[in-house]
Simulated scan of single mutants.
Amino acid sequence: MEEQEQQQERTPMQRALPGLLIAGSLGGIGLVMVSLLSLAPPPVDDGSGSGKPLAAPQGAPSTVEMSNAGAFILPPTVGPGGKDVPLTPARLDAPPPLAAVPVVPSIPKTTAKAGKTAPKPTRIKIPKIKVNAPIGSVTVSKKGVLGTPPLSKPNRTGWYKGSPVPGETGPAIINGHVSTRSGPAVFDRLRELAKGDQIYVYRSDGKVTRFTVSGIEQASKNSFPTKRVYGNTSNSQLRLITCGGVYNKTTHHYTDNIVVYATLSKKKG
């Protein structure tokens, strides 16, 4: 979290941050791709309901920190992504990537009024990777594990209700599966996004928000960049999350997460 932002009022999401884990059931495209045996069933995101975390608890041993101590030094910033560019994690202490284009002011937070409900995201569109999907909601379990959309609805994404509504100040969190036993899921091509690509999120109050990708990384679940993903921000940002890395056919889990960072660049309605 940036020093100048530490004094801001803590939202429910920030209060839950120290114990927050992302459920490990999103399935992924690997840092080191492996093929399943031809007779084995297709991999399934290991987190919808499995309870396995995508992120390590704060204070857990970090493979990233071990890497920093060895020959492999992680970059100080999140990379831009792009065609044929390998995805790697940034250092755990690195801030979110800088906005790719000028940012616009956040949409003021709206609370529920008598007879009305608070706004929520309803649909996400990502032209580059042909995503046009409904947005449901997910919550955190008593064990601090963030839920994911049901595997029976592979085209559905999940907005973490403890995060801001997309367009409001702070990092809105949306996750989604990359595969199910029946084939590719909504975020199958998420790793193809790169700096400058656009993401549109539609809201129940009629407002439309456009976010521009500022960076993308692939990080180990044992050293998930919790602070970078969930930490407070001074403007409106978006995080898209799915799985990546090596698929373990025994545990049905993937080793890594793909995280896309984006900043609000346009709004209407």
Rank of each mutant, 00 (worst) to 15 (best):
G136W: 06
P75A: 15
S106R: 04
D93N: 14
P80M: 02
I126W: 15
V104G: 00
G115D: 08
A100N: 06
P86C: 02
A133N: 02
L92A: 10
P86F: 03
K116L: 05
A133P: 01
G115E: 08
L98V: 12
L74T: 09
S106H: 06
V103P: 03
K83G: 11
I124N: 05
P134L: 02
P96T: 13
V78W: 09
P134H: 07
G115W: 05
G81V: 00
S137H: 10
K125M: 06
K109A: 06
A114N: 14
P80C: 00
P96Q: 12
G136D: 01
A69M: 12
V85M: 05
P89K: 05
V138P: 06
L74W: 13
R91G: 10
I135M: 01
V101E: 03
L92Y: 11
K109D: 10
I107H: 07
R123A: 00
P105Q: 05
K120N: 15
G70R: 08
V78R: 05
P86R: 08
P76K: 09
P105T: 00
G81K: 01
A133R: 02
L74V: 02
T122Q: 08
S67F: 15
G79I: 04
G115L: 00
V103Y: 08
L87I: 05
A69I: 06
N68Y: 15
P134E: 14
A133I: 01
I107L: 07
P76I: 06
P97E: 07
L74A: 12
T122N: 07
V85A: 10
T110W: 14
K109N: 06
L87A: 06
